[in-house]
Amino acid sequence: MIGVLVVEDDFRVAAVHAAFTEQVGGFKVVGTARTAAQARAKVAELKPDLVLLDTYLPDQLGIELLADLRVDTIMLTAASDAPTVRAALAAGALNYLVKPFTAADLAARLTAYARYRGLLAAGDKNLDQDEIDRALRVLHDGDKPSVPKGQSPVTARLVADALRSADGSRSAAEIAAQLGIGRATAQRYLAALAADGTAAMGLRYGTTGRPEHEYTWRG
């Protein structure tokens, strides 16, 4: 389980970001902080694996705090000017997500971070260049979800969210019924998820008739 500290001065926004995070499998919010001072104390106390950090804190800029942290950090902020983005990346931010964003936007980046973390969880093993390059590519896999030509990004996100939150495998018919879309449409978007490795595809055998494809979220 990846422990997350949410650092955000607005408690309502912090609650939303925490709820978004808790929806992603393998992540748990261990605490929240509204100031830089609270964040430092909670990092020391709770030892989170990841910090979700706002830029505008009442006692210090988040980027200044970031430079002092020794923990993986993703910026969640309304600041989108180039100097702030450069400063955050230079200070060590692993990713940068501009408000407002959706649960799916954050989930994509968290899922990519989990894969990146898994690739680097090799203890004291020396990594070769290919392994390092792969980890860096994986880290940003969720920055711009790939949607095949002719598909709607909105529908693609809805199908992905439905499969991600499912308890086990789902068929195209089940996803279609859940979202109120056509079975063929659901099948097309699920097949795209399977093609890029986000979902695993298998066969479900019933008592009669032909087997149907079933899909399981892999992230």
Rank of each mutant, 00 (worst) to 15 (best):
A172I: 00
R210I: 01
A177I: 06
P83A: 13
Y205A: 10
V98D: 10
G209L: 01
N126C: 07
A195S: 09
V154T: 10
K149G: 04
L89Q: 08
H213D: 01
R109M: 13
S169I: 02
P83C: 09
A91V: 10
A93F: 11
Y189G: 08
L163N: 07
G202E: 13
S152A: 05
D128Q: 08
D167H: 10
A87F: 03
S80A: 12
L136S: 10
L94H: 09
Y215I: 03
S165L: 14
T208M: 10
H213M: 05
R117I: 06
R188D: 04
T111M: 08
G202D: 15
A90H: 12
G150T: 06
Q151N: 03
R86Y: 06
A103D: 13
Y205R: 14
V138E: 09
V154S: 03
I181C: 09
P100A: 15
L203D: 05
A135E: 06
Y116W: 15
D124I: 04
A176Q: 04
A160I: 06
Y215H: 07
Q187M: 02
P148V: 06
R117W: 11
A195M: 07
A112H: 08
D124K: 11
G182M: 05
A88G: 15
Q129F: 02
E174A: 15
A166E: 04
D143G: 02
V98M: 13
L136H: 13
A192E: 04
P153C: 08
P100N: 12
S171F: 08
A177Y: 00
M201Y: 05
A194I: 11
A108T: 02
A104M: 08
L89R: 12
F101E: 13
K149Y: 01
L106A: 13
G202W: 02
P148Y: 04
R117Y: 12
T84C: 04
D161F: 06
Y96S: 11
Y189Q: 00
R157C: 01
A199V: 06
R170A: 14
K99H: 04
T111P: 01
T198D: 07
L89Y: 08
N126Q: 13
A79D: 03
D141E: 14
Y113V: 14
T155K: 04
D133M: 09
Y113H: 13
L127M: 15
N95E: 14
N95Y: 04
S165I: 01
L106Q: 13
L110Y: 12
A177N: 07
L179P: 00
A135C: 01
A91F: 11
D105W: 12
H140S: 12
A82D: 07
T155C: 05
G123Q: 14
A195D: 14
G123E: 12
G168T: 07
R86W: 05
V138P: 00
T207E: 13
N126V: 15
H213V: 02
L190W: 00
D130H: 12
L179R: 01
T155N: 04
D161A: 09
D161L: 09
L97E: 03
D196Q: 03
T198N: 03
Y116L: 02
Y116V: 01
P153L: 01
P211V: 10
T155P: 05
A108C: 14
T208C: 09
P145M: 04
A104H: 12
L193I: 03
V98S: 10
Y189N: 03
Q187P: 04
R109T: 14
A90V: 06
L203Y: 09
Q129C: 01
A114Q: 15
L203E: 15
A121S: 15
T102V: 09
Y205M: 07
